[in-house]
Design a protein around this nucleic acid. Structure first.
Lengths: 193, 193
DNA sequence: ATCGCCTTGGACCGATCGGTACACGGAAGG
DNA sequence: CCTTCCGTGTACCGATCGGTCCAAGGCGAT
């Protein structure tokens, strides 16, 4: 079953690349370093990857696509506003926690993509932002949320995305608790009544 | 007045480097490219900069130090909690808006620093985070804020820092309005009463 | 006019960059 | 046994990497 071996190797290499890119940056990681980490010669490596940029593209696109699928599922499930927002936050934090290297690479390095690769990743990113906007708009329409400036969507995503830098899911605060803490503050504020 | 010329040239080069690093990443920007943008030969360039990493260090450190000074001034001014928080947010957003390239470089590339350079920048960053924690703690002690999980500090900073990616200070929403919008949501929540 | 210093461009350093070409090995299919 | 072909390591490509060195230029002070 050479196909399976090929795909498996490919996936393994993408994972290794994510770790190296996260640690040493995309431009700061050489093909030599990558091939050594993968235990392959340079020729063998190129047999799998095609180009260095392809790796960066796949690392980024995979995660964003996953989040888009997750958001679409939640938006289509008829959840009430609060559960919808908490669900979306938990999905994102959970994915970031499980794929920290990939998200670090995506956030820091997507600008290194060129042409269509970049366009597609940016478009996917904007689609995801649109889903959050939809969720908030729905809450406003239902009367659960007060009318809220559009820019707040960026603030919320900043709050969540930034976790890739510091969140330790095995620490004393878990992924779900963190998402709930963020949403408690966002929904009801931190001022005393 | 050769000293002034020297320092002025140096500052100019640091600014150009910030723009190039922000656009093409630190490792993705070559000395040749930088010297061309500065209108200098490579030898002349090195007369001013010492090393490429020095540029990265200065770009990062300058901004963080400025924010630390700002936070210290506000914390020492006896402002009440709400004004303190809004003032700190406005200071940060204003600085980010005025030095977008520098902040982009800092957020994306500080991991490329080595040794003491890196330690110093990380320490300065943590000091700034500590000032926000102090401000929140003060609000809790005063009874203005409800007790709040420590991790929320990271969330707030994420919300504010992330603006380097998208905020256009000359757009329809200004710096101060944005800071206020974020703090309205944070203080009182977005849920209807 | 002369001295000395700051500034400058460019040649040059070894190392590495991303990527290609190619020949070898070994297993599968006949 | 022979052919075919995928997987592989390696030599090699031109270009560029960050950084150093140095000789010439420019300019102010004496």
């Amino acid at each position: 079953m050479s196909t399976t071996t090929y795909a498996g190797n490919r996936e393994r290499i993408v994972g290794i690349a994510a770790e190296l890119f996260a640690r040493n940056s995309y431009h700061g990681t050489g093909i030599a370093e990558l091939s050594k980490a993968a235990g392959l010669g340079r020729g063998a490596l190129y047999h799998y990857i095609g180009s260095k940029e392809t790796l960066l593209y796949e690392i980024s696109k995979t995660q964003v696509d996953r989040m888009n699928a997750h958001a679409e599922a939640l938006l289509g499930s008829g959840l009430e506003t609060e559960d919808l927002l908490r669900g979306m936050a938990k999905g994102l934090l959970c994915n970031i926690a499980e794929h920290r290297s990939e998200w670090a690479v995506f956030f820091r390095e997507y600008t290194a993509l060129t042409g269509e690769n970049r366009d597609r990743v940016v478009a996917a990113r904007e689609r995801y932002e649109g889903y959050w906007r939809q969720a908030l708009d729905r809450g406003v329409a239902d009367g659960v949320l007060r009318p809220v400036p559009r820019l707040l969507v960026k603030g919320i995503l900043g709050m969540l995305n930034y976790t890739y830098l510091w969140f330790e899911p095995d620490g004393e605060v878990g992924t779900d608790e963190l998402a709930d803490a963020f949403l408690d503050a966002l929904l009801d504020g931190i001022r005393t009544a």
